[in-house]
Design a protein around this nucleic acid. Structure first.
Lengths: 104, 104
DNA sequence: TCATCATATCATTATAGACTGATATACTAG
DNA sequence: CTAGTATATCAGTCTATAATGATATGATGA
C-alpha cells in the first residue's frame, strides 16, 4: 500500500475522529495518565482503552513510560493539544451544524 | 440523540478524517471551486464529491454560492485552513508513524 | 515461588459510512 | 419550449473498524 500526503493527513485526523479516542486524548491534555485513570475518567472498558492507545501510539500521537507497575501515557507533541484547542473554538462557532449533522 | 462536547468535536474531526473528504477540503484551500473542478482535481466521481460536500455543508465546514449554472464551494472559516496547516506540520514530523499505522 | 494488580492481545460480532450506478433536479442558452 | 450541462439524491453493496468478553502478558511484593 502506498500513501500520499492527503492519505497520511486523513489518518492523522482519524485519530481525533472517534468519540472514544478523542475522549482519551482529552484526558491527556492535563498531563500523563495511567490506563486505569483513563478507564475511570472516560467510562470505557479497559480493553477498549488499551486498543485505542495502541492505535494512537503506533501512529505517534502518544508515547508511554513505565513507572513501577503503572504505565503512563502522554501526548507526544504540543501541537496535538493545539489541534484540539482549535477544534474547541471551531465547534463553539459551528456547533449548530454539528448538532444537526447526521451524515457521518 | 444527545451530544457532549467531545462527541461534537469528534464529528468535526471526522470531516477531515476521510481521504476523499480531506482531498476535497484541500482543493478549497486555494479558494472557491465548482463541483466539476473538484471532480477533475480529486479524480472522484461526481456523485461521490456531491455526497461529501453535502456532509461538509450540513456540518458547516463549507458553504456554497450559486453563480450561473455553476455552484462554488468554499471553506466557511479560516480556522479550517489553519487546522489543515497544523496537520501538515504534524504529519511531516510523525510521518513514519502514519506510514506504519495499520490499526485505523 | 505465588498471588495480585495493571495492561495488552485476540477472535468475534455489529454497525457506520464510503462508494457506485441510476436517476432526479436545476440552471442556461438557443 | 427543448437540449445540454451542472449538481443532487437515492437504494443497495461492501468494507473498515469499534466494542466486547475471554484470555494472555508483565510487573510487584510477600
Amino acid at each position: 500500500m502506498q500513501f500520499n500526503a492527503t492519505e497520511l493527513k486523513a489518518k492523522l485526523f482519524r485519530g481525533f475522529s472517534d468519540t472514544s479516542r478523542l475522549g482519551i486524548l482529552e484526558t491527556l491534555r492535563n498531563g500523563p495518565r495511567t490506563v486505569s485513570e483513563m478507564v475511570e475518567i472516560t467510562g470505557l472498558t479497559q480493553p477498549n482503552v488499551s486498543n485505542h492507545l495502541a492505535c494512537l501510539r503506533e501512529c505517534g500521537l502518544v508515547r508511554r513510560e513505565q513507572k513501577g507497575k503503572f504505565i503512563y501515557y502522554e501526548l507526544s507533541d504540543e501541537r496535538i493539544s493545539t489541534l484540539m484547542e482549535l477544534g474547541d473554538g471551531l465547534v463553539a462557532d459551528l456547533a449548530k451544524g454539528f448538532y444537526e449533522c447526521t451524515r457521518y
